[in-house]
Design a protein around this nucleic acid. Structure first.
Length: 486
RNA sequence: GGUGGCGUAGCCAAGUGGUAAGGCACGAGUCUGCAAAACUCCUAUCCGUCGGUUCGAUUCCGACCGCCACCUCCA
């Protein structure tokens, strides 16, 4: 069974096969850097990240390009109110974007092109469209003539009359058709500008993506991703520009990520109901936020709430407990076959159960992710195996070490695809050299107290450490400690 | 007005034309000096409402109710 992707263009689940075998070109619409990104923005970036991780996991060589829109009306306006320059503002927020996304465990794209660094290419593309009669110049601005592309509307399925009927925006009388959009905006006084054959100005938003996608990935790309709000008009316009210029299909699979909601409504900057990703990251570990963001399918809306984050934290704790219990078997050589030596009947039974649970999990995980990256379902398969592992750990007498090692391998690999088991709190602490012996000592003292049934001392140590976010657990093999937060 | 989506247990959330994954929470129990972790059991005869198609629908079709989004910069 191969990968299927829901293509917004056909509005169907389609078998995925890249243009070049074994290679996938992917473009994701990045942020307009006039502010920090909020969790809603992060959802799209995260989905892109996971798609890329999964494609890589499947053996594809992926080239991911994500743009940075670093010149636009909002940046200019914001810079004015802040008393800074648009360039500086974009620079600072661009850096903040990488900082925030990397904290969330999002791997940088292969290329992060900036609009301002591709002005000549954009001018060329616009000129090509003018030459083909698909654009016209008015007062130093260049407009795309929507009528010249007869497939216009194929992505959003909007008919011209529908668009006109609903138009709430003021009609620019200079346009031939209200649907026409600008590819080059003539500069107003005090605005940043670049020279062009049509005078000083700056590029429109849509031409940026057309241009940078094609420059870095070629005229036809495999996957184009973005938030669902970009479907119209942005992606529709990208198609119009690119396909008319090249005569080739622009993107083969269109992936649109649903909104993150808050209190039932869309999280949006203009609604002022957003939460900056960096603020969320200050309160919750990255893995918790990731878990939350992928707990629903990417094409379904997801409602943000503190309760949901807390649920994710609890769920992740269960996962983590299991993985940590399993980790000590990591060094064992994972056994692949069903045939292995078991001296006890019970252990053999445990092995068989676990082994089949591992296989089931692998199949279910792949199946879920193959079906349009169903992370929620994939997570279900992971937790099913966690249950079986926990049961097996309880009945194990040491004979199933290789199987546990295999379970660890499979679980940690799949969790890595989702990015929910990448960090190790013990290492993150960074003070392990001091902390380890110190805690060993405390545990030893506590064990002595317990041997003498001095529960007061024993409990005091445990309770006090818990205040410090360190949890002690007494098991049959002795006492262990770990950091409470993930 | 046009276009699209959603409504599944207390909460979150998968999913299927043949009878409901997973997580969180709650309750009971096992284990433990007590905890913690883990395990066991308990949690939807039912998937917004009403019709229709079907041997059979939560899953397909229609209507209705409720909610959300896009058509304007927005991931």
């Amino acid at each position: 069974m191969g990968l299927k992707i829901y293509n917004s263009l056909s509005r169907q689940l389609e078998e995925f096969s890249p243009l070049t075998e074994g290679h996938v070109s992917m473009y994701s619409c990045g942020p307009t850097v006039y502010d920090y990104i909020h969790i809603g923005n992060a959802r799209t970036a995260l989905v892109t990240d996971i798609i890329r991780r999964y494609l890589t996991y499947k053996g594809y060589v992926v080239k991911l390009v994500q743009n940075l829109t670093d010149i636009d009306d909002k940046i200019i306006a914001r810079a004015q109110t802040l008393g800074t320059s648009p360039i500086q503002l974009a620079q600072a927020n661009g850096e903040a974007y990488f900082e925030d996304t990397q904290r969330l465990g999002i791997q940088p794209a292969d290329v992060h092109p900036k609009a301002t660094e591709h002005i000549p290419e954009m001018i060329n593309l616009i000129q090509t469209l003018i030459d083909k009669g698909a654009a016209y110049i008015v007062d130093g601005s260049v407009y795309y003539r929507v009528n010249s592309f007869n497939e216009y509307g194929k992505l959003s399925r909007r008919k011209p009359e529908d668009l006109l009927a609903g138009a709430r925006v003021e009609v620019d009388e200079r346009k031939e058709d209200p649907r026409d959009f600008d590819m080059w905006k003539a500069a107003k006084p005090d605005e940043p500008y670049w020279d062009s054959p049509w005078g000083r100005g700056r590029p429109g938003w849509h031409i940026e993506c057309s241009c940078m996608a094609m420059k870095h990935l070629g005229e036809t790309i495999d996957i184009h991703a973005g938030g669902e709000d970009l479907l119209f008009p942005h992606h529709e316009n990208e198609i119009a520009q690119s396909e008319l210029a090249t005569g080739k299909p622009f993107a083969r699979y269109w992936v649109h990520v649903a909104f993150l909601k808050i209190d039932g409504a869309r999280m949006g900057k203009s609604e002022k109901n957003f939460i900056f990703l960096r603020d969320a990251l200050d309160k919750y570990p990255a893995e918790v936020i990731r878990h939350f963001l992928i707990s629903a399918h990417y094409r379904h809306p997801l409602d943000y709430s503190l309760e949901s984050l807390q649920k994710s934290e609890s769920a992740l704790k269960r996962l983590r407990n299991c993985l940590e219990a399993l980790k000590k078997y990591e060094q064992e050589t994972p056994e692949i076959t069903d045939e292995h030596n078991s001296t006890s009947q019970d252990a053999a039974e445990t092995d068989t159960h676990l082994l089949s649970a591992i296989k089931t999990m692998q199949a279910q995980f792949t199946d879920a992710m193959d079906t349009d990256f169903n992370t929620a379902q994939a997570m279900g398969s992971i937790f099913s195996l966690v249950s079986q592992v926990n049961r097996s750990l309880g009945t194990s007498n040491g004979i199933s070490d290789q199987i546990f090692a295999q379970a660890y391998k499979v679980l940690s690999e799949t969790c890595q695809v989702l990015g929910i088991y990448t960090m190790n709190a013990q290492d993150v602490a960074g003070t392990a050299e001091i902390l380890n012996p110190l805690l060993e000592l405390l545990l030893e003292i506590r064990q002595n107290a317990r041997d003498q049934k001095d529960w007061d001392t024993s409990d005091k140590i445990r309770d006090q450490l818990k205040q410090l976010n360190i949890e002690i657990q007494d098991t049959h093999e002795g006492s262990t400690w770990k950091f409470l937060s993930l």
